[in-house]
Structures are given as C-alpha cells and as structure tokens.
C-alpha cells in the first residue's frame, strides 16, 4: 500500500506542477459555448454579445486565483508552485476529512495488504 501511495503522490505532484504547464489554454467545452457570439483577442472578450460577457469577477479571488501566485513575478514558477501546493493542500484536506469520517472504524476483514 505504501508503495502505491508514494508512487501515486509523486505522479500527482508531477502532473500538477509540471505537466499542467503544457495544458491547453483554449477555452473549455462550457466556456467556448458561452462565448458563442463574442469575439476574443488574446483571451479577452473584444466584441459581440455572449453569455460569458455578463459574468463578474470571482467573489473572493483567493490566494492562488487562476492557478497562479499573484505575488511571484515569474508566471511559470507561480503556476507550477500553485499546482503543487494545491495538490498537497487537497491531499491534506481530503485525507483529514476522510480520516474524521472513518474514525473508529476498523477494517471489516483482515487487511489483505500483503504485497506492495
């Protein structure tokens, strides 16, 4: 189990911190449909009318708004760090919550955790 978890965590951190830098920057399925009727230049709406135009700014922004770190000058480093910290944070929050939920519950059957 340990080996599986460690491998999984490394893969996940690499996906968020490195592979994500090469992800497509095009609007996704929902956005592209909400953009129908508008023209865009450099990722900003530049004309026309569409649903997405009506959207306001995000209510709170957040420390890692738009998967970057606003206080870092280096955009690539910021995106990579935001991804890695996001993964570690998610891992921590989820494990913590599920641990609370499972508290006091022992495995029903003897764990068949022999290999790996």
């Amino acid at each position: 189990m340990k080996k599986f978890l460690i491998t999984g965590t490394i893969v996940t951190v690499v996906l968020a911190g490195f592979v994500s830098l090469f992800a497509s920057a095009s609007p996704d399925g929902l956005e592209s449909v909400l953009l129908t009727g508008c023209e865009t230049t450099d990722g900003e709406i530049s004309g026309g009318t569409c649903v997405l135009q009506a959207t306001g700014d995000h209510e709170i922004g957040g420390v890692f708004a738009d998967y970057g770190m606003s206080f870092l000058d280096n955009e690539i480093l910021g995106a990579s760090l935001a991804g890695i910290l996001g993964v570690l944070l998610t891992l921590g929050v989820a494990t913590g919550l599920f641990w609370l939920l499972a508290r006091g519950k022992k495995p029903a059957a003897p764990a068949n955790d022999v290999q790996a």
């Binding site: 999984g8 996940t12 497509s24 399925g29 570690l88 998610t90 494990t95 519950k105």
Partner: peptide
C-alpha cells in the same frame, strides 16, 4: 469507509484536482 481506505481516498482527491488542471484540446 474504514481507516485503510482513507489514504487512497485522499490520494484520489488530489489526483482529480491535478487532472482537472490538465486541459486537453478537443
């Protein structure tokens, strides 16, 4: 849920978070 499943559920959650960052062209 039992305690053995907790780390796997945590890892799966983190993996989904990471995977949601990876936009692929369609």
């Amino acid at each position: 849920l039992d305690e053995r499943l907790v780390p796997l559920a945590g890892l799966a959650t983190a993996f989904i978070f990471a995977a949601q960052m990876l936009n692929f062209p369609i």
